[in-house]
Every structure is written in structure tokens, then in C-alpha cells.
């Protein structure tokens, strides 16, 4: 069975959201709102209201990075300072907490930022081959609604898009 990817380009968010609302109401049998990929030049603040909650695990990685940075930072410093055991400390502790706090804090932030970056790149699916049916109009001023559907559903979907004044429809077969 052949599957097709259909992209509808709309002039603004209102028209695109209206089209998605109809998809949510199963106006195209067999097509779910969970299959919708919304492409836009900006992030609409209400996009989650329209598409529903979708996961983004960036904060968990950030927390993991911060904890790793803090632990690594302190242990790194402490293990380096432990090599001074053979030397006179002038009455100071071998592992001084006040000064190590400052450097541990810096490491916490550094690794927190690095883990955030990595989780963003992985989570957002960057570095992969560009998704099909990319339109340069999306980076300009149009909003795209893209779905992968069965071939027999494609015509109904395009008709739905047309009802909401779609500017352009593009499609291609899934390879």
C-alpha cells in the first residue's frame, strides 16, 4: 500500500489551526491529529492547545548535566588537590570547600549548558536529513500542515485543506 506525504501551506495560523481542528474531529477518516507536523516561521504560543501535549525532554537532560558537572567538578578538583597531600598546606585543608565551591558552580553551569545543547539537537531532530516537502515559504511567512497518509486518504485531506483556503498543496510518495 502506497503512502503519501501531503503538505498544505496556509497564509496564517488561523487557517492552519482551523484545518487541524477538523483533522482532530476526524473529518478525514483514519487520520489523527497526532500525525500532524506543523511547520511555521515562528512558534505560536497556543500550538500545544491545538496539537496537544507533545514531549520535550530537554529539562531532564539539563538537570542531569548540572548534576554531572557539579559532581565531576568537585571530584576533579578534590582529586587534583589530593596530590598535594605530600606538601605543606599552611594550616589550610587539603580540599578547601569555599574555593572549590566557586569552581564547582562554574562546572555545574558549563555542563548544564552543554547537556542542554545536546538534548536540544537530539530532541529536535537536527543534524538529520531535511524533512521531505520543505518549502522556503515557511521560513518567510506561511504556515505548513504536513501529514503522512494512505494514498486513498490524500484526496480527502487535500479537500479539507482547500476548505480552509490553503495557498498551495505539495505532495510526494513516501520512499
Amino acid at each position: 500500500m502506497t503512502r503519501r506525504i501531503v503538505l498544505g501551506l496556509f497564509k496564517d495560523f488561523d487557517q492552519a489551526f482551523a484545518a487541524i481542528a477538523e483533522i482532530r474531529e476526524h473529518k478525514v477518516p483514519g487520520v489523527s491529529v497526532d500525525d500532524v507536523i506543523l511547520k511555521s516561521p515562528i512558534e505560536h504560543p497556543e500550538v500545544e492547545e491545538v496539537l496537544g501535549e507533545r514531549p520535550a525532554h530537554v529539562p531532564k537532560f539539563t538537570l542531569a548535566g548540572a548534576i554531572f558537572g557539579m559532581t565531576f567538578g568537585f571530584l576533579f578538583l578534590a582529586s587534583a588537590q589530593a596530590t598535594f597531600l605530600v606538601q605543606p598546606q599552611g594550616g589550610k585543608p587539603v580540599v578547601p570547600l569555599p574555593s572549590n565551591f566557586v569552581l564547582t558552580y562554574e562546572m555545574l553551569i558549563l555542563f548544564g549548558v552543554l547537556f542542554t545543547l545536546v538534548s536540544f539537537i537530539v530532541g529536535a531532530g537536527l543534524f538529520r536529513r531535511r524533512p521531505p516537502l520543505y518549502s522556503e515559504m515557511i521560513s518567510l511567512d506561511q504556515v505548513g500542515v504536513m501529514l503522512e497518509v494512505e494514498e486513498e486518504q490524500a484526496e480527502a485531506l487535500k479537500e479539507l485543506f482547500r476548505r480552509h483556503k490553503v495557498v498551495e498543496i505539495r505532495e510526494e510518495a513516501v520512499r
Binding site: I37, L38, K39, S40, P41, E43, V47, E48, L51, R54, A56, V58, S119, F120, G123, A124, G125, L126, P131, I138, S139, G144
Partner: peptide, 8 residues
């Protein structure tokens, strides 16, 4: 510019 990319 996908919703997934914007969300992350």
C-alpha cells in the same frame, strides 16, 4: 521550523 523543533 517544525513544531517539534520549536518546542525543543
Amino acid at each position: 521550523g517544525t513544531d517539534r523543533q520549536w518546542r525543543h
